[in-house]
Simulated assay, not measured.
Amino acid sequence: MASRSLRRSNPITLVLALMLVLGFMLFILTPDKSDPIPKTVTPARSRKPPAVQRYHMNTLKATASPISNQEKVIILTPLAKFYDEYWTNLLKLNYPRELVELGFIIPKGREGNLALSKLQDVVHKVQTGKKKDQFAKVTILRQDFDSPVPQNEKDRHALSAQKARRAAMSKARNSLLFSVLRPDIAWVLWLDADIIETPPTLIQDLASHDKAVIVPNCFQRYKEGGVSKIRPYDYNSWHDSNDALKMAGTMGKDDIILEGYREMATWRLLMTGEYKEHGSVHDETKLDGVGGTALLVKAEVHRDGAMFPPFPFYHLIETEGFAKMARRLGYQPYGLPNYLVYHYNE
């Protein structure tokens, strides 16, 4: 018994046991150097959080002096077909480029692909050119649906195509608007892709009236017997009539009133009929419906909820429905009967 007890307490045995325990602990606690932390990875404790952007929306204003107040404008265009004249005219607008953003939405399909290719070429040329000529930002979106009708003038203006065509246009406008309207934008200019001639001062001219919603008169140049003439084009800017209101009262909930068609005699007063050849371009008129060929809107109107209804809204749709929605929100649309912009003549 005595000899066994002495062997258990032998110093050599105790030292070996201690060395074994220490070796095991060292093995466990030593990190594996075969898989080191890459040098490009920043330890979490030293990683900085992303910067926080603050926008003081209460100080964001859209005024009658947009350039002197450095107010940002975004020009939005649903673009199903690319016209060189549209782009040439756009580049002639003399609002400071650093305050201008562009947004486009293009439909699916062969025509959309062609329009996209041409647009990308001209945008790339400008945005890689001189700094002073570059726009602050350019966004191009593609629709996830096709245009419901062909884009030639005859087919797209047929009465039977209007409800589907304008519903699709509303969806395109809303998709574009909700995707690109940033908190520091003061004005939204809706400019159709087939508007090929406007004054270079279009933005500041319209903004100078300090209206929440304002639209010029859209005409079209043409030749008759070799003589250059102009004629009305956009009939969507109008003053309502008792006849139209009575017509709406007899309609089903999904029916819409369309302006400019013999089949629907609304007897509304159209802004095209208020044009005076030598009248002042500053003349204003209150409107119940607006067209979207060149429509300037204070961004707050859209932020408050006014969009382009793709469904019958008080029997109105798209831009005319937008005007009704803006009025319901307390924003009165205005028109300029003698201030002309021109539509492409096919």
Rank of each mutant, 00 (worst) to 15 (best):
G109S: 00
K131V: 14
G291K: 09
P312C: 09
R110E: 13
N152R: 03
A323F: 13
Y344D: 04
A248H: 08
I214M: 10
A80T: 06
K246E: 15
F311L: 03
A17P: 06
G225A: 08
I75M: 06
H278D: 11
D35W: 12
I106M: 04
P200L: 08
R182T: 15
N345C: 11
E318A: 13
Y339M: 05
I230K: 11
N174A: 01
I230R: 11
I105P: 03
K92A: 07
H302R: 06
D35P: 04
R182Y: 10
R173I: 01
R262Q: 13
K118I: 09
R47D: 04
H278M: 03
F311T: 14
N174M: 03
E284P: 00
L79K: 02
T42G: 02
P150T: 08
V215Y: 01
A115Q: 02
V227M: 09
L26D: 08
L91I: 14
Y342M: 04
D205G: 05
E259R: 06
P49T: 06
D234N: 14
F145L: 01
Y314S: 02
S34D: 14
Q143N: 11
I75F: 01
S228L: 14
H124Q: 05
A186G: 10
W87L: 10
L336Y: 04
V73H: 08
Y222Q: 08
L116P: 00
T319W: 03
K130R: 14
T285I: 14
A164Y: 07
M264W: 07
L329K: 09
H157Q: 13
K125R: 15
T319M: 03
S68E: 11
